[in-house]
Nucleic acid binder design. Structure first.
Lengths: 204, 204
DNA sequence: CTCAAGTGAATGAATGGTCATTCATTTTGC
DNA sequence: GCAAAATGAATGACCATTCATTCACTTGAG
């Protein structure tokens, strides 16, 4: 676009192009899968030459990493901000769950990259775990521990296991939403999941 | 192995080789991932020539399909048999959950193929859904409905959502088990998951 | 102001390596 | 000996990555 003036601008334009490549990659990966996506598909989608991709990323894999890192970073920092003012552990978990489903529910392509491409290789999963997933699970675990101290949650349960259960349930909602032909809102599922997570399915 | 005698046997021997290829493929896919696995790796692992693979399977992808189909078929038919004598819905869910974790916990390579390779492509997931996953989820759903009729489970919950929650929680246990460096038994997690699923984490 | 030289971003054709799949030939079992 | 089964070298596609070249723009000398 309108390029003028000096140094400042060439930097700006470079960042924009990096952004454009990432956006194009999310779209292409979501539609064809990481392994079947060609770098030339991404370049085409971003409307740049194949070689230009390599001015901004070392390799195809680095693009995928950038997607994970950037999203997890913003996801975790936003999440922490959202819950820091909340007192009760159960309300914290509610906000985390809503945020989880709102975020992924707002961008189907991004959700596909997270739910599908990311899980398709143990290597990616381990890297993703290092990239922030472990920290995310840990925030849930700590909140459950807090709830136990607050006397809101049962003290006989293992918080590590509970955090996996809650995450697994939310995760499955997202996966089902992606695979479903029918368009429906993902976020409202948070309430249903938490109702079961808090109170169980057994008749009181 | 020991191949001898007539018509009966050449069929048998062919079946054995097919088996051997499938076992080799599970091992190779689990270690390198579907897309990075070479057909020659599978042939090598099965101790046969590359070309021989194509006498038993139309393509590399068909091998993956065979793995899913065969496992889901036996998994579902065994599952149905296991629960048909059980009366109470909660006991049925317990048996299903135990079976789920026992099966995958008994064969790490198979578990990796199911948890990782299978999830790595929307195409595979859809095919897998058709292959029996949908039926599996439906068995859980029906059992929850039964439990509601039996007055064991809350009637205000949507059984479809509940079935996803239970499945998602179990699934996450398996995924964590695969990624964990520490060797631990997977099956006992069924009890912990069900405790939360039935009773919730909230203090009564 | 004007234009020649300089700069580095962008290009896309070429490269090099990787496999899935095929098939002419060999081996095996009877 | 002869089917059927197995072999593995050869084939043909495919694609990530590279790099020589182009091009748009800036700079500064006159």
């Amino acid at each position: 676009m309108a390029a003028s003036r000096t140094a400042d601008v060439s930097a700006r334009s470079g960042t924009d192009k990096r952004e454009a490549i990432i956006r194009a990659a999310i779209r292409v990966f979501a539609r064809k899968g990481y392994f079947s996506s060609k770098v030339s598909d991404i370049a085409g989608q971003a409307k740049i030459a194949d070689g230009t991709v390599y001015l901004y990323f070392k390799s195809k894999e680095e693009i995928l990493h950038s997607i994970f890192n950037r999203m997890m970073e913003s996801f975790i920092s936003d999440g922490k901000k959202e819950i820091e003012g909340i007192e009760r552990a159960d309300e914290k978990l509610r906000r985390i769950s809503e945020l989880h489903l709102e975020r992924l529910g707002a961008d189907r392509d991004l959700a596909i990259v997270f739910q599908v491409q990311l899980r398709g290789s143990i290597k990616f999963m381990r890297e993703f775990s290092a990239a922030g997933f472990a920290e995310y699970l840990d925030i849930i675990r700590k909140t459950i521990s807090e709830g136990q101290k607050q006397g809101i949650f049962r003290k006989d349960l293992n918080p590590v296991v509970c955090s996996k259960i809650l995450f697994g349930a939310l995760d499955e909602m997202v996966t089902n939403w992606i695979l479903s032909k029918k368009k429906f809102e993902l976020a409202p599922a948070a309430g249903e999941v938490l109702d079961v997570f808090f109170n169980g399915v057994a008749r009181a």
